[in-house]
């Protein structure tokens, strides 16, 4: 039984067909990874799920059709979203960024500050002056503040130093113990470490769904679907290598 089901998701922006029929099932537990090469439509898929771009098709969350809902109502159903560019409000302080995300009467600040003690120290600092890793922490913290039933993280490790990548991965792994996570990720080592199932997009369509480790273990399939080795030499791996 999947928590989030996407069927025949199509997105057209400015006359360009970005997605032509994405299928996606996010498991009710653990981390589901959304993979694919650059430009395959991963970010557009999650933006469409969130209602941030006009879309057609069906998106079902916990049995209810949420396709037509505006973004804020999608979120209020219990979906926390950390976007690709982190979506941190640069002019606002860290505390204000977090306060803005509060939806529950009793936000889980204890958990957030336990995971990211740095954010407590930098409470009053303008978020725009934080490092990339710290900004990513703010973005993830905002999703963990509320009792969400799903967290969507879009490339949370993009552009981060290897040490921070490990830190973020640890947090995601820990978060996934209590809440299912949909993780868009290029870092295959990280995927292998924390993801259970995965879906692979290619050219705006779903090319494969299945067990993440099984896919990554199958070198032919991985190369065909993800272009591993030839297309992603820049991937920063926290441990070992993805080849």
């Amino acid at each position: 039984m999947s928590l989030l089901t996407v069927r025949d998701l199509r997105v057209v922006i400015d006359g360009l067909h970005i997605l032509h029929g994405v299928e996606l099932d996010v498991a009710a537990t653990g981390v589901t990874a959304l993979l694919g090469r650059n430009g395959a439509g991963k970010t557009t898929t999650v933006r469409a799920v969130m209602g941030l771009v006009p879309r057609t098709g069906t998106v079902t969350f916990d049995g209810a059709d949420i396709t037509g809902l505006p973004t804020h109502q999608v979120v209020r159903r219990g979906i926390g979203y950390a976007p690709e560019d982190r979506g941190v409000f640069a002019q606002l302080s860290v505390a204000e960024n977090l306060r803005l995300a509060e939806r529950d009467p009793d936000p889980a600040y204890d958990l957030v500050f336990e995971l990211f003690p740095e954010l407590k120290q930098r409470h009053r600092q303008a978020a725009g002056t934080l490092s990339g890793g710290q900004q990513q922490m703010v973005a993830i913290a905002r999703t963990l503040l509320n009792g969400n039933r799903l967290v969507i993280a879009d490339e949370p490790t993009k552009g981060l130093a290897p040490k921070i990548v490990t830190e973020v991965a640890d947090v995601l792994a820990r978060a996934a113990e209590s809440v299912p996570v949909l993780l868009v990720e290029q870092n295959l080592a990280l995927v292998r470490r924390i993801a259970g199932r995965c879906a692979v997009l290619a050219d705006g369509r779903t090319a494969h769904q299945g067990d993440a480790r099984a896919l990554l273990a199958d070198e032919d399939a991985a190369r065909r679907l993800l272009g591993v080795g030839s297309h992603q030499p820049e991937t920063t791996a926290p441990e070992g290598s993805s080849r």
Binding site: R47, L52, P54, P70, T71
Partner: peptide, 14 residues
């Protein structure tokens, strides 16, 4: 008229 996502503000969509 195409049922647009109510609060979806599609600018900057990429």
């Amino acid at each position: 008229t195409a049922a647009a996502p109510a609060a979806a503000l599609p600018e900057g969509a990429a």
